[in-house]
Design a protein around this nucleic acid. Structure first.
Length: 577
RNA sequence: CGGGUCGUGGCGCAGCUUGGUCAGCGCGCUCGCCUUGGGAGCGAGAGGACGCGGGUUCGAAUCCCGCCGACCCGACCA
């Protein structure tokens, strides 16, 4: 490959684009890799397309090595299959839908579980057709409420999704493990430092699920790690260790006048001032906070739900929503129409709506909580005696320092990352929905079980840019850089010809070459552009050319050394290793 | 969807409070000269319905109303 900058569609920007905030977005636009074309939609310019294609090639190689067969589905799909799976409504506003000229509903695919399930139903009939792994690289569409971060969250993006089909649960576990290993190889080859965390399945359904998170300040996912073991999880998937049930030793419930205490802080203050229950050491953690939310189940009437949790914790709506999926919850604000729910003084005793409690609210624990009357609270409200939750829920915020749920020893730390991959053991959710049965070895019908495995390719490019840049520009890992070597013709005119000659020979030697042969562009501009574009190896054809030397530079370390012109191919090839 | 900021040549911005040679600056672009190892210099140019639609006024980029769009924070999000 030989690319000449004199003819390349490339325009580097000296100034930062006003609409770009995160480093990857700023640099990819400034260096001429992508350009915004629509809200949440980006045009891949020649340099960017080269990178994207190299990322895709690595993914294809590893998918094939893991036994995957590549196919390609349409992006424009009819409504029916998604109606059958229930996702037409579950995905809700996040799905792009449209009508054709006859008024029939269609959608722009956000993901393809339905189609691949139908395909497998159509093309298989026997246990001999399994196991099977199919994958595709496709443009996906999601009507994101708010695209952001350039390539990091678009409404249209490139994704690799793979689907495994097995007839046994063991087979699924094996396929999942194989894909998991392939993902580790892929992200390592892409130069992405990443962590695998336990996750929740969300709208996809299914059981086991893990996310691959590329560490980055601008990441949208918060995940936890443990100081003592190798536990790692998305905050949404953190399970709260429940204390064991205990004997009820608390005195009977007692109601107290607690005027003007609608908040936990004001309640704790007053409790200590008045020595409620004979104590003056009340803390927020002794109180039971009860928060009312409106829950929307797909296609049903909204339901009111109360959440009980220790008063020193806030409700984390992300965690709550993950726990309630596919239903969604928002804070309730209609207290005026519900006199039985006294805002600021709600208690779980005889509450009229469904009540779910944090796991810390274990049987036998006693709490200071609302008495369901304005200006009154109750002490010694005991779980299991004075109230019984309808279940537990993971809705409380996770905090650094919380006890690790895996080892029970270490404490949790919190970090941010970009979700670059997500793998699921879906199970039979979709094969059940479409009643996919094949003939088993025993002559009886068998229903395949599925896994699905996604990688955001365009997002991966952005994640790589987040992890590989400095104050001068991008610093691509060699495996996915737009070229192997960037040749700069510095100095007088004769050097352009020499640079082109060198470029030709390196190209014939199998290297991917970008050569800056622009006439009438000063050396300084070329150097600055080369550093912005970020190809790892740069050859400067300049002042020592007449002596038979060129300069070889390392983009990352800024090392420079003079190399005889005749040795350049060898030096570059060796160092690229 | 809530909150905030903002729409002026390709890009980044000033001008708006106090309406009237305000269509302006930097970068980029074109042509010429010069320069050629760190975003050079000089000269000459091209390019803008000031987001859209109404309104006020003798006169609107500037004031008023409505709309649209973008970005940021939050909500939401394989």
């Amino acid at each position: 490959m030989l690319l000449r900058m004199s003819t390349l569609l490339l325009k580097t920007l000296r100034e930062e684009p006003a609409d770009a905030e995160v480093p990857s977005h700023r640099l990819l636009v400034r260096a001429g890799f992508v350009r915004r074309a629509a809200p949440g939609g980006y045009t891949w310019l020649p340099l960017g397309k080269l990178v994207l294609d190299r990322v895709a090639a690595i993914v294809q190689e590893e998918m094939a090595a893991a036994g995957g067969q590549e196919i390609s589905f349409p992006a424009l799909l009819p409504r029916e299959p998604y109606e059958t799976s229930g996702r037409w409504t579950e995905y809700g506003d996040d799905i792009f839908t449209l009508k054709d000229r006859r008024g029939a509903d269609h959608l722009l695919a956000p993901t393809h579980e339905e189609m691949v399930t139908l395909l497998v139903q159509d093309m298989t009939g026997s246990y001999r057709d399994f196991p099977l792994i199919l994958f595709q690289i496709q443009t996906k569409f999601r009507d994101e409420a708010r695209p952001r971060g350039g390539l990091l969250r678009g409404r249209e993006f490139l994704m690799k999704d793979a689907y495994s089909f097995d007839l046994t649960d063991d087979g699924l576990v094996e396929a999942y493990a194989r894909m998991r290993a392939a993902y580790q190889r892929i992200f390592t080859r892409l130069g992405l430092e990443h962590t695998i965390v336990s996750a929740v399945s969300g709208a996809m359904g299914g059981s086991a699920s893990e996310e691959f998170l590329a560490s980055a300040e601008v990441g949208e996912d918060t995940y936890v790690g443990c100081t003592a073991c190798d536990y790692a999880a998305n905050t949404e998937a953190v399970v709260t260790p429940a204390p064991p049930a205990r004997e009820v030793t608390a005195p009977p419930l007692a109601v107290h006048d607690t005027p003007e205490t609608p908040t936990i802080a004001s309640l704790v203050d007053l409790a200590n001032t008045r020595a409620l229950g004979g104590r003056t050491d009340w803390t927020a953690a002794d109180t039971l906070k009860n928060v009312v939310v409106t829950v929307q189940h797909p296609g049903r009437e909204p339901e009111l739900l109360a959440i009980g949790l220790p008063g020193d914790r806030e409700v984390d709506l992300k965690r709550l929503n993950a726990a309630l999926a596919p239903a969604t919850a928002v804070l309730f604000d209609g207290f005026d129409s519900r006199p039985d729910l006294v805002k600021g003084y709600i208690g779980p005793q005889d509450i009229k709506i469904r009540y779910l409690a944090d796991p810390r609210v274990a049987p036998g624990t006693a709490w200071l909580t609302g008495a369901n009357e304005p200006g009154k609270h109750a002490t010694d409200v005991v779980c299991g005696r004075d109230f019984t939750p309808d279940g537990t829920v993971e809705a409380a915020e996770v905090r650094p320092g919380d006890t690790c749920p895996a080892c029970g020893d270490g404490s949790l730390t919190m970090r941010r990352g970009i979700e670059i991959g997500h793998i699921f053991q879906l199970g039979r959710r979709y094969t059940d929905a479409f009643k996919v049965d094949v003939l088993g070895a025993d002559g009886k019908p068998a229903r395949p079980t599925m896994g699905c495995y996604g990688i955001g390719l365009s997002r991966a490019v952005a994640a790589i840019a987040e992890q590989h840049h400095d104050d001068r520009g991008l610093t691509w890992p060699a495996a996915i850089a737009p070229a192997d070597v960037h040749i700069v013709a510095a100095g007088k005119d004769g050097q352009v010809e020499a640079a082109l000659t060198l470029a030709g020979s390196l190209s014939r030697a199998g290297l991917r070459v970008l050569v800056d042969d622009r006439p009438n562009v000063s050396a300084g501009v070329k150097f600055t552009d080369a550093e912005l574009i970020g190809i790892s190896r740069c050859v400067v054809v300049g002042r020592r050319l007449s002596e038979g030397y060129v300069e070889v530079r390392d983009r990352r370390t800024q090392d420079r050394r003079e190399v005889p012109l005749v040795d350049v191919a060898g030096v570059i090839t060796t160092e690229l290793g």
